[in-house]
């Protein structure tokens, strides 16, 4: 039912919003939701921090960009190849990386993100270097472009919807329980017979694949990519989306992505003070709703419901 309502809301929004600016904003919220969803599975559920997630976002974008621009692949043929490349890279990175934990894992993933950024910038014969990669073809089906306006919106949100269903299924399954167990205590999880190493690698790869898909969509929607779109600050922004929205919350990923995509747009009115206000808002959210927006809003709702119940059951004088 919840999924159906979500799908209906996406459809209704797509049909009613007509301004291209708003459609573009909604489309980017979708792309960011994919990024936050993946990282939430890794960080929120399994408790493994990644400060280099933009690397996989970039891998998806540059993978498809290079395949289509330099080697003449069609985007649809490039998609499985890009995802396969991401799978291999994520798997090879995860094997040694996930032996680390806590701050050390954070540092390790940060290092990986920086290496990826340097490769995107310096391998200019393939990536276009600082000037970026231009001429990435728009997605189309039978000559109908899917990369702009409503078509782009529906394509991205169809992917988000599929990712949502996949994540919800995982979270509600024994695998989801095992991921949360790893988050709470890796030793206790192992004592239950959970193969913690294998599961951590699995969720890392899954998370990387979602980021890569987001990168693929981004590259074909914008048709131009440059290294700055995949630098350290982007990784931090994805982490912030997860934390602000709510760790270990599928819906939190959506909320976090929406807030961090919309806020900078709304805050343009503050001109020079835009970043100051942005920072203050994030600080306020974290101080008053430390478990993120989703949990915080639910808590406020439950508290007000309890208050109402208490008020209605109190004897009248």
């Amino acid at each position: 039912m919840r999924q159906f309502t979500f799908a209906a809301a996406i459809l209704a929004l797509g049909l009613t919003v007509s301004q291209s600016y708003h459609l573009q904003l909604l489309t980017f919220i979708g792309i960011h939701t994919l990024l936050a969803l993946g990282l939430n599975m890794l960080m929120g559920y399994a408790g493994q921090i990644s400060l280099g997630h933009a690397a996989f976002y970039g891998l998806g974008a540059y993978g498809t960009g290079i395949l289509t621009v330099h080697w003449g692949f069609s985007p649809w043929a490039g998609l499985p190849l890009t995802l396969a490349l991401t799978f291999v890279v994520a798997f090879l990175v995860a094997l040694p990386m996930l032996k680390l934990s806590g701050y050390y894992l954070g540092m390790g993933t940060l290092g990986f993100g920086m290496i990826a950024f340097v490769v995107f910038r310096e391998w200019s014969s393939l990536t276009g270097g600082d000037s970026g990669l231009v001429g990435i073809p728009a997605l189309d089906v039978g000559g109908v472009s899917l990369s702009s306006g409503k078509a782009g919106y529906f394509l991205v949100w169809a992917c988000v919807l599929l990712a949502f269903f996949a994540c919800e299924r995982v979270v509600d399954s024994r695998v989801g329980r095992a991921l949360r167990a790893i988050h709470d205590s890796e030793r206790a999880a192992a004592a239950m017979g959970i193969d913690t190493s294998r599961l951590k690698v699995w969720v890392f790869v899954f998370s990387a694949l979602l980021a890569s898909l987001a990168g693929f969509l981004y590259a074909h929607l914008v048709t131009f990519i440059s290294p700055n779109s995949f630098d350290f600050l982007v990784s931090v922004r994805i982490v912030t989306m997860v934390v602000i929205g709510g760790m270990a919350s599928i819906w939190g990923s959506l909320l976090g992505a929406a807030v961090l995509t919309i806020l900078p747009e709304w805050l343009h009115v503050f001109t020079d003070y835009e970043m100051v206000v942005y920072g203050l808002i994030l600080m306020t959210i974290m101080i008053f709703l430390p478990q993120g927006l989703t949990r915080g809003i639910l808590d406020i709702h439950e508290r007000s419901k309890r208050k109402d119940t208490a008020a209605s059951s109190a004897p009248r004088s």
Partner: peptide, 17 residues
Amino acid sequence: LLFPPMSVLDNLKLGAY
């Protein structure tokens, strides 16, 4: 070493992983 945020049932189910 229980899993504190999880329900009693989920903890038990994890035992049978």
